[in-house]
Amino acid sequence: MDTPEIHLLSAGSALPGPAVDNAALARRFKMEPLWEQWVDAFIGTRSRHLAVDLETGVIGHTLADLGTAAARVALERAALRAGDIDLLVMATSTPDALMPATVNVVADRLGIDQVPSYQLQSGCSGAVQALDLARQILLNGRHRTALVIGGDVVAPFYDVNADLRKLPPAELVNFVLFGDGAGAAVLSVDPAPGSAALRSVFTRLVGLGRAPGATLEWYGPVERPGKGPAAAEDYKAIEELVPVMSQDVLHELLDDLGWRGEDVDYVLPPQLSGRMTTQIFERLGLAGQQVSCVAETGNIGNGVVFFQLERALGRIGPKERAVGISIESSKWIKAGFALEGV
């Protein structure tokens, strides 16, 4: 018996509030004008959206807020109602609480009940892990339509009173690299106009013996002062390893599907920063169009892939092909997926 196809019907996204550009950050944190130029030149991210108000420190959006909003957009675009969903999967590294799981708060707000629900705790690659889990469950034949959500809110770790002039680079970069947001996608065993077949998905832990490239503690800097940084990035290790891992993922996807590089029409590269994303895309050496969001949204963790999918679905025509790559630096995970218009 032929293996059924799993189709990506739609994708949606949600961002908190207006964009915060580098000039606004420089003003708020009293950084010298050259700092803004440094961010533009070496990070390449022009703006991001934040769930925390920079002036008051008040958090105005939760992950559940953003996940619910993104899910509603995806459902509307798929012409489906909450009652049509019989499987729910969410990926995040920043849940609103340890319990209840944010995925179940979102389900309640959407009116979804009596279905399996899963929440994956992971960094950027959790989005692909969520797609993979949903796809595998749909392939067993007992469920037909899945809502997959990914997102992160870094507000609990964003100290608006920090003196950025005194921070080491591993902590400073987090203030300009990341943003908040959530995305969602609808997967189904049934195709629909404008859908794309999910031809391949894989994730693989490759961190044996490697030091973590990123850490995120359960506490925020305001809640537990003196305990070390709540969030830190080994940006040098990330710059060195992520481009190489991205090439590995691309070659594995192409080999698995029997595709050639020239067969790829759209490329969804890792969205680390504007500068690194461009470097990775150029290193991949593909002629396909780049589908990117990070320069405007910042690195939104588990939301990134869904923002890219939202942009890609509007472009992929019949028989056109797309590949997506996600690399997680926390303990080093390689992940990728491939789409084909139907």
Rank of each mutant, 00 (worst) to 15 (best):
I325M: 02
N299T: 05
S330P: 08
S330H: 15
L257R: 12
W332I: 01
E328Y: 04
V294Q: 14
Q271A: 08
G324Y: 00
L286N: 00
P270H: 13
E320V: 10
G301A: 14
D256W: 09
V294Y: 09
D256E: 06
V294W: 12
R275T: 07
L284I: 00
R321C: 08
V291Q: 09
R275A: 12
R311K: 14
A322R: 10
L286S: 01
G314S: 11
I327R: 05
R283S: 08
I325Q: 03
L272Q: 07
G258D: 03
I280P: 06
I300D: 03
I325L: 10
R283Q: 13
L272N: 08
L268H: 07
G303K: 07
A287H: 06
F306Y: 12
S292M: 10
T277M: 15
W332E: 15
L257Q: 13
R275W: 12
M276I: 07
T278W: 11
L309A: 02
G298T: 14
S273T: 06
G258V: 11
L286A: 00
L254K: 03
Q290H: 11
Q279S: 04
V291I: 15
Q279L: 13
A312P: 10
I300W: 05
C293D: 04
G261F: 02
W332T: 13
A312G: 06
G301F: 10
E310G: 11
W332K: 08
S326F: 01
E328R: 10
V294R: 13
D255P: 04
G301Q: 11
V264I: 15
F281L: 06
I300Q: 04
A287K: 14
Q290T: 09
T297M: 13
I300T: 02
F281Y: 15
A295D: 12
Y266A: 03
T278M: 06
L284Y: 00
N302H: 07
L286C: 00
A295K: 15
W332F: 00
Q289I: 04
P270A: 03
T278P: 05
S273K: 09
S292E: 13
G317Q: 07
T297G: 02
Q271L: 08
S326E: 03
E296T: 14
R321F: 05
M276F: 05
G298K: 14
V267M: 08
G258I: 11
N299M: 10
L313A: 01
S292D: 12
L253C: 03
V323I: 09
D255A: 15
S273L: 07
D263F: 10
C293V: 15
V305P: 01
I316D: 01
E310H: 14
E282D: 14
P318F: 05
I325Y: 01
E262C: 02
G285H: 02
F306Q: 03
E328V: 06
R315N: 06
L309G: 00
G301H: 10
W332A: 11
D265H: 10
G288D: 00
R311Q: 14
R275C: 04
R283C: 03
L257D: 06
P318S: 10
L268F: 02
G303I: 14
L284P: 01
S292V: 13
V323T: 02
Q279R: 15
V323D: 01
E282Q: 13
S329A: 15
E328I: 04
T277D: 11
G303F: 12
D255C: 07
K319P: 04
T278V: 14
W332V: 09
R311F: 09
V264T: 03
